[in-house]
Design a binder for these strands. Sequence first.
RNA 1: GCGGAUGUGGUGAAAUUGGUAGACACGCUAGACUUAGGAUCUAGUGCCGAGAGGUAUGCGGGUUCGAGUCCCUCCAUCCGCACCA
Length: 924
Amino acid sequence: MELDFKSLALKWQKNWTDTQAYKVEIQPGKPKYYVLDMFPYPSGAGLHVGHPLGYIASDIVARYKRMNGFNVLHPMGYDSFGLPAEQYAIQTGQHPAKTTEQNVKRYREQMDQLGFSFDWSRSVQTSDPGYYKWTQWIFKRFFNAYYDTKLLKARDISDLISQFESEGNVNVEAYTEYNEFFTATDWKAFSASDKENILQHYRLAYLSDVWVNWCPTLGTVLANDEVVNGTSVRGGHPVEQKKMRQWSMRIKAYAERLLEGLNNIDWSDSIKDQQKNWIGKSEGALISFEMAEANLPAIQVFSTRPDTIFGVSFLVLAPENPIVEILTPPECKASVLQYQKEVSLKSERERLTEIKNQTGVFTGAYVIHPFSKEKVPVWIGDYVLANYGTGAVMAVPAGDQRDYDFAMKFNLPIPSIFENCDLTQGAVVDKKAILCNASFLDGLTYAEATPKVLDALEKIGQGIRKINYRLRDAVFSRQRYWGEPFPVYYDLEIPRLVEDRDLPVELPKIDAFLPTEEGEPPLARAQKTDWNVHLGDRMEFNTMPGWAGSSWYFLRYLDPKCEEGLASKESMDYWKNVDLYIGGNEHATGHLLYARFWTKFLCDLGIVPFDEPFKKLINQGMILGRSSYVYRLKAKNTFVSHGLKEAHECFPVHVDIALVENDLLNLEGFKNWLPEYKNAEFILEPNGTYVCGYEVEKMSKSKFNVQTPDELVEKYGADTLRMYEMFLGPIEQSKPWDIKGITGVHGFLKKFWRLYHSNGVFGLSEETPTSEEWRVLHKTIKKVREDIDRFSLNTVVSSMMIAVNELTDLKCNKKQILTDLNLLLAPYAPYITAEIWEKIAGKNTLINDAKFPEFDESYLVESTFSYPISFNGKMRFTVELDLSLDIKEIEKLILNMEETKKWLDGKVPKKMIIVPGRIVNVVI
RNA sequence: GCGGAUGUGGUGAAAUUGGUAGACACGCUAGACUUAGGAUCUAGUGCCGAGAGGUAUGCGGGUUCGAGUCCCUCCAUCCGCACCA
């Protein structure tokens, strides 16, 4: 019987469904292993070959772990809220739920084909009310929590309120930017609305007026990680800064723990660095400069170089800094306002592109230097950012290049504060430079001067040590329809939570998926009766962002039907966090940071028993497309083959890769592809073929280089595709997709199949294997185990090929060998191995639960070794020697050989390096 | 500018602790078997050289008996961040 992978696939897909082969339950006492893929957004285009790369890898590990006695949790679901379905709804009126359902169905079919061992009974969709009920439930916990900066954890807001009631906020240790003080009496006198406004400064989910990334085309705000170079990641639409009342999450409170936690997880340096960078911790001082004019508040600046304070020759504030208005004297008002207006008209993008061209204007105000007591002018300039630090810097032109440039441009003094320095070319940024003209800091370096100046500042009460983070609070609302509604309603514009028992607040029916005429989000279109829950004056009209549902989905898989909580305590205690997480690195500072944040928060509240969601992370590389080109003669419908194109004046044109195999063009197919090529003519290679050129590019429809898994599964079967995707190279590496090599893997599977069949009939011999056969098997077991354990999934394929080649050469059809060989391949090629297993073991067991072969060292013991003999490090010949020989004996044997004498060429060896079982090196 | 990753045949790559560089596969060359092959099998295939041999892991140095692997300098490509005080 020839290998018929199509009927095998149908047979085993049905079998696995009928027997619920991949359904798992808690098994106390059995070790667990949780393997997770980043769940996909189900787009209309379906999966292309890049998507399954990670799924195949995780499936191999899942199957391997299962065969090694682990209870493996391997679920899959859909991040099904998102912009494309809504954009499609706007264009066509089709409800996004409908589109989503169709796309999910298509994804499921594609994934089923590939033979994944997902437990689909645990699948979740973020847009399912049964799921987002719990997303809302979590939001409520954030709203009802504040961060205790002493205990370093989130606590219930009621604890904070009791403290306000008993002693006001003077001694409160809570994370906030709120800097006004009130007493218990004050608190009791506040109105409900005042109280809530204050609490909003402490809650971990809060409302505030913030500058947001507003994307007019999409009609919504975007998170910082959703904006690149001033345009939206999705769609590339322009983004502008706008001040709006928005929900945010107080992620800044967790900055230090998010940074610290990176030390305890097994993620790549690149992702950890990206997160570190994003959090952007810097240590320094908060220094206050008193205004020269009485009755004006001091200006606070943040500096990481307080040691250079004697080099301050001016201060610069961000143009948006609200204090500017207060300190600007009347005579400068006009020029300051004029400048502020100019800056505000510039888009984020313009400010970024004009980075080198600093602008600014003098405010007319002066501050007093804390030590020298000299007057220092205050400027505003757009190189100072409003939302970093305090939005103000002390400028030290001698020690900071940006300050230096600003000083040069506006002709401000550049006082020298370092010994023997040249300030004509630029600032001195070397931290080893020795300070001078710096009063009590003279003769010191950065490291010595910093603690000294900090102590001095603290003593005079004009500065404190301060750690600053670049990380900003995450905006949590979107002005869209297709997202989670908030469990929030308003009474006189005071936000109130919907009771747990009334959740979920479901998405109401609306007449169009567009903003209202007043510019309110689409949910404002819903009538009172359209809501399943409607309280107070109105419901919240915003919806949650895409990252809401994806920040906790790995928890829901533990117990997806749970009605009492996110998941039962039992399931969380058993399955715990994800042992292996596989996905693309585009989520480095978005999803992966938010999921860590939510997990830490839920851990603080005692809801989950761990504080990092993903113990090990592997980022699969991107699969790039390999486009094919034909070369069209100028102004003609004639195409010249790649090998001859230099001799003609021609230009490259993309051609559909479906018409090209091994770079050879299917000429008839090409003519029928597009009407304009109907009468195409060709200039062929001497051997009569048309060879196409190629280019490695991103996969996209317009380049005709998109490869879906479907065609390949149809042509070669899922086992081949799975093995081939792994065979391409290391999982983390980006690589071009090229189907050229797929025939090699397909050939391997046929050869593998032939080991078990002679003349088309299945049959294995009961004979005792030879020692050579045992050696091949155990060498392979060792290699396969070691390689899967270190996620080197590509080399496993090679080792299996070698084993099959060697066993074929040995004409091995021994049951004892081939049973184990089949088990070794099972994680990679589930269909073919299931079929062979059935023939070996019968219908009553599944290969999925069979024991993965154990390695036995005794089969690999050799008595001789083929020594490479080198002269001065260059390998010249090899000699088979007994491994029992000692160094002296080896030396003697080697020196007496004819070959050795030839290479010694009469000289006497200076030294012999002999590593038994490894190498011999003769030094001449 | 800062940070990270990667550089090995015509191609994808392998070489886990420094120890026979290029395993495995594609492609290519020649051959066998076939009505046919996108089936199967055999032999060859880094480069130079008829051969002996020489040479070779981005460039240049270094450490070592021995370096793709360790150290230093530089170059290229990709990714991330970027007036972050």
